[in-house]
Lab assay of single mutants.
Amino acid sequence: PDFTLHWNGITIHFKGIDEEQFRHLRELLDRGVSLEELEELAKELIK
């Protein structure tokens, strides 16, 4: 499924991740993950 997340004025689209992965990403963003960390995470998910 696809998810869209609005965070700090940025709209991020996640394609092909499951709800569990999306929930994990939201928790990280709510905790204050940096954009660099988010990019690293995205690379991991894409593999």
Results as ranks from 00 to 15, higher is better:
residue 30 D to N: 14
residue 5 L to H: 01
residue 2 D to T: 15
residue 36 E to M: 10
residue 26 R to M: 07
residue 34 S to R: 06
residue 4 T to A: 06
residue 17 I to L: 08
residue 30 D to H: 14
residue 22 F to I: 03
residue 9 G to K: 02
residue 7 W to S: 06
residue 8 N to W: 04
residue 2 D to R: 08
residue 40 E to W: 09
residue 25 L to E: 00
residue 46 I to R: 07
residue 18 D to W: 04
residue 14 F to P: 00
residue 3 F to S: 01
residue 12 I to Y: 11
residue 15 K to D: 11
residue 24 H to R: 14
residue 26 R to W: 12
residue 32 G to N: 06
residue 13 H to E: 10
residue 47 K to Y: 06
residue 6 H to T: 14
residue 22 F to M: 05
residue 20 E to D: 10
residue 28 L to C: 03
residue 41 L to E: 03
residue 18 D to H: 07
residue 33 V to Q: 03
residue 20 E to W: 14
residue 11 T to P: 04
residue 12 I to A: 02
residue 27 E to T: 15
residue 40 E to M: 11
residue 3 F to C: 05
residue 47 K to L: 14
residue 24 H to W: 15
residue 46 I to E: 10
residue 30 D to K: 15
residue 18 D to I: 03
residue 18 D to L: 05
residue 47 K to M: 14
residue 23 R to S: 05
residue 47 K to I: 15
residue 44 E to K: 07
residue 47 K to W: 08
residue 5 L to F: 06
residue 42 A to E: 02
residue 13 H to G: 04
residue 37 E to W: 09
residue 38 L to N: 00
residue 39 E to P: 04
residue 42 A to P: 00
residue 14 F to R: 00
residue 21 Q to E: 04
residue 4 T to M: 07
residue 32 G to D: 03
residue 12 I to F: 10
residue 7 W to Y: 09
residue 37 E to H: 08
residue 20 E to M: 13
residue 24 H to E: 04
residue 24 H to L: 15
residue 31 R to C: 04
residue 42 A to T: 05
residue 40 E to K: 13
residue 17 I to E: 02
residue 7 W to G: 01
residue 9 G to F: 02
residue 29 L to Y: 10
residue 26 R to A: 05
residue 39 E to A: 12
residue 27 E to I: 13
residue 13 H to C: 12
residue 44 E to N: 09
residue 41 L to G: 01
residue 4 T to K: 07
residue 6 H to L: 11
residue 11 T to K: 09
residue 30 D to R: 15
residue 21 Q to W: 07
residue 9 G to Y: 03
residue 40 E to R: 12
residue 21 Q to V: 13
residue 42 A to H: 08
residue 3 F to V: 02
residue 10 I to R: 14
residue 36 E to R: 12
residue 32 G to W: 07
residue 32 G to L: 09
residue 29 L to M: 07
residue 13 H to I: 15
residue 38 L to I: 14
residue 8 N to T: 01
residue 41 L to K: 05
residue 2 D to S: 14
residue 12 I to T: 01
residue 15 K to T: 12
residue 41 L to S: 02
residue 45 L to K: 02
residue 21 Q to C: 08
residue 6 H to G: 03
residue 32 G to I: 10
residue 1 P to G: 14
residue 34 S to E: 04
residue 35 L to C: 04
residue 21 Q to R: 05
residue 27 E to S: 15
residue 22 F to T: 01
residue 33 V to M: 13
residue 16 G to W: 08
residue 7 W to Q: 04
residue 46 I to D: 10
residue 37 E to R: 12
residue 18 D to G: 08
residue 44 E to R: 09
residue 45 L to C: 03
residue 7 W to E: 01
residue 24 H to K: 12
residue 11 T to V: 10
residue 29 L to P: 00
residue 31 R to K: 11
residue 28 L to K: 05
residue 4 T to F: 13
residue 3 F to Q: 02
residue 25 L to Y: 04
residue 24 H to G: 05
residue 4 T to Q: 04
residue 5 L to Y: 04
residue 8 N to I: 02
residue 4 T to H: 14
residue 25 L to W: 06
residue 23 R to H: 07
residue 27 E to K: 14
residue 39 E to S: 08
residue 36 E to F: 13
residue 14 F to E: 00
residue 16 G to Q: 06
residue 5 L to T: 01
residue 9 G to V: 01
residue 19 E to Q: 13
residue 10 I to G: 03
residue 28 L to W: 12
residue 3 F to K: 02
residue 22 F to E: 01
residue 39 E to Y: 14
residue 39 E to L: 14
residue 42 A to R: 05
residue 45 L to W: 14
residue 21 Q to M: 13
residue 26 R to E: 04
residue 22 F to H: 01
residue 40 E to L: 11
residue 46 I to P: 06
residue 37 E to C: 02
residue 33 V to R: 05
residue 2 D to M: 14
residue 30 D to A: 15
residue 7 W to F: 09
residue 37 E to D: 09
residue 16 G to F: 10
residue 31 R to V: 07
residue 43 K to W: 08
residue 17 I to N: 02
residue 45 L to F: 13
residue 10 I to K: 12
residue 17 I to R: 01
residue 5 L to M: 05
residue 42 A to G: 04
residue 25 L to H: 00
residue 8 N to E: 06
residue 30 D to W: 15
residue 12 I to L: 13
residue 32 G to R: 03
residue 15 K to M: 11
residue 45 L to S: 06
residue 27 E to G: 13
residue 22 F to D: 00
residue 44 E to M: 12
residue 2 D to H: 13
residue 46 I to K: 05
residue 11 T to M: 06
residue 10 I to T: 08
residue 14 F to I: 08
residue 8 N to H: 08
residue 26 R to K: 10
residue 4 T to G: 01
residue 21 Q to L: 14
residue 37 E to N: 05
residue 3 F to E: 01
residue 16 G to L: 06
residue 38 L to W: 05
residue 27 E to A: 15
residue 28 L to I: 08
residue 13 H to F: 11
residue 9 G to L: 01
residue 6 H to K: 09
residue 4 T to P: 01
residue 9 G to Q: 02
residue 46 I to N: 12
residue 20 E to I: 13
residue 10 I to E: 05
residue 36 E to W: 13
residue 38 L to D: 00
residue 7 W to N: 02
residue 22 F to A: 02
residue 3 F to A: 01
residue 23 R to M: 10
residue 41 L to H: 05
residue 41 L to P: 00
residue 15 K to N: 11
residue 10 I to V: 12
residue 32 G to V: 11
residue 38 L to S: 00
residue 23 R to L: 09
residue 43 K to P: 05
residue 33 V to S: 11
residue 29 L to I: 08
